[in-house]
């Protein structure tokens, strides 16, 4: 250890909850912290995909970068053998139990990642404009339609982005990156009314 470490300053970070509480809705775009959700990472061979969907209650989308929704649940295609099964407001343990029972003996992997990320909603007529200040994808409705989801980047962080309505995007971001993303979105929102 050197005698004078060059770091070591206190580093207060505004917690995400405080950022969210301080955020005011805007005419152009608004931000909202989404409530907790069960999130399961599902990977598997062909034989496991159908049963996984059946057990979860909706058919897993096979088209690249699309999600399927049924009730509050959604299944997001993230890769050719990779989905996120999303169940807002639910607890992950019973879901894992149900799915593992249905998938017994089928080659697959199911991992509880409920706590890994948090959800942020960006809504409003200028939502795409706000997101395009950090996200390099074409967010025009014809290029990124309702029902699309994908991993991508926002500034220097990875996010999962999906569009649930013309004016509503949902971001899923690993929790330690969330305050960074939130503050950049607030910055991007300035001047949009």
């Amino acid at each position: 250890m050197s005698d004078t470490p060059n770091t070591g300053t206190p580093y207060p970070i505004v917690p995400l909850e405080a950022l969210a509480a301080a955020s005011r809705p805007g005419v152009g775009a608004s931000l909202r912290l989404l409530p907790a959700a069960a999130r399961l990472a599902f990977r598997g061979r062909e034989a496991a995909i159908g049963p996984a969907g059946a057990a979860f209650g909706l058919e897993l989308p096979r088209t690249a970068c699309r999600f399927a929704a049924a009730g509050t649940r959604a299944a997001l295609w993230l890769g050719p053998d990779e989905w996120i099964l999303l169940a807002p407001g639910e607890s992950p343990a019973p879901l894992v139990e149900t799915l593992e029972a249905a998938l017994a003996g089928l080659p697959h992997a199911l991992v509880d990642v409920s706590s890994r990320s948090v959800g942020i909603e960006v809504s409003g007529p200028r939502a795409a404009f706000v997101l395009n200040q950090g996200c390099p994808l074409d967010l025009a409705l014809e290029a990124f339609p309702v029902g699309m989801c994908t991993r991508t980047v926002f500034a220097k962080a990875e996010i999962v982005l999906r569009r649930t309505a013309t004016d509503i995007f949902l971001i899923d971001v690993w929790r330690s990156f969330a305050p960074y993303i939130w503050q950049l979105l607030e910055e991007a929102r300035r001047g949009t009314g």
Binding site: Y11, I13, Q133, A155, K156, A157, R175, S176, F177, P179, Y180, Q183, L184, E187, A188
Partner: peptide
Amino acid sequence: GAARGELFDPARTTP
């Protein structure tokens, strides 16, 4: 752009 000061890089913190 916005990448300056505290937003230059993500500051990752634990729970």
